[in-house]
């Protein structure tokens, strides 16, 4: 462990950059995948796997571990990179994204990949899965946490709000959910496709303990989770304002990079920006 918080943040920022490089590399090699939403979620997933979560690479399914559900499953390159860099499997596995016989399916398959806590990909469903896991944690009086990441566009799914009701009913303070609020979805801006505002008020009215942060600031991410762990009897929503495509200038805030792979030239440019050559 780094001796000071500054050192920790520096270490995590370096790791997040490494994650972004791996994300770009695997999507380029596959010539398929979703870079935009993976890059917007990178800093949060980095903070989770390299500081906040208790997981064991030698025993990926041990009962007392923390769990993470990437409900916006199309962003899976971010979790694939995190699990590889954490040591659940060799980095070389990342070269097989979306290929035949790969552990890295187009959307996450929990039975194929060690370290993955839930299958996902069809939007709107991961928060319910998190509620189920959190209920078992409460039944068995375990102190692990369930981390869930949903998208802002994904919040248009009705099932998100069914899950929000259920988490409140059972006072599931062991759920810490993030909204990767990058403002974009496939067809354009969330505000135009189907507005979800007022967003924070929605979660508060469902009786969730709700915070708003900059989702690219590792200090804010860590502080928000630490605060969430202290607040009891309410489920936690951390609305993380992010930039879709964060870290690669020409991908930032462009809906077109939701589900497009870079060509050779764009790939070189992206790696140059990330210093990953």
């Amino acid at each position: 462990m780094p001796s000071t918080k500054t050192e920790l943040i520096k270490k995590l920022e370096k790791k997040a950059n490494q994650m972004r490089v791996e994300i770009i590399k695997m999507i380029y090699k596959a010539q398929s995948g979703h870079p935009g939403g993976a890059l917007s979620a990178t800093d949060i997933v980095t903070a989770l796997y390299f500081h906040l979560m208790n997981v064991d690479t030698a025993n990926p399914t041990y009962q007392d571990r923390d769990r993470f559900i990437l409900s916006k499953g199309h962003a899976c390159p971010v979790i694939y990179a995190a699990l590889a860099l954490k040591g659940f499997y060799p980095l070389a596995v990342l070269d097989t994204l979306r290929a035949l016989d790969s552990k890295l399916q187009g959307h996450p398959d929990m039975n194929k990949l060690p370290g993955l806590d839930s299958t996902s990909g069809s939007l709107g469903q991961g928060l319910s899965v998190g509620v189920g896991m959190a209920l078992v944690g409460k039944m068995e009086q375990k102190d692990y946490h369930i981390y869930v990441m949903i998208g802002d566009g994904e919040s248009q799914e009705g099932q998100i709000w069914e899950a929000a009701m259920a988490a409140n009913k059972y006072k599931l303070d062991n759920i810490i959910a993030f909204t990767d609020f990058n403002r974009l979805q496939v067809d354009g801006f969330v505000d135009e496709v189907m507005p979800i505002a007022p967003y924070k008020e929605k979660w508060e009215s469902f009786n969730w303990h709700t915070q708003e942060i900059n989702g690219h600031n590792l200090t804010e991410i860590i502080n928000a989770v630490e605060l969430a762990r202290e607040v009891k009897d309410k489920p936690h929503m951390i609305i993380a304002h992010t930039v879709k495509g964060k870290g690669v200038s020409f991908m930032e805030n462009m809906a077109v990079w939701h589900g497009r792979a870079p060509n050779a030239q764009e790939y070189e440019l992206a790696l140059q920006e990330l210093g990953g050559n």
Partner: peptide, 14 residues
Amino acid sequence: QNEFGVAAGMAMSG
């Protein structure tokens, strides 16, 4: 829909 999703999460937890 949530009922079945919650059940899936419970099954994933044993």
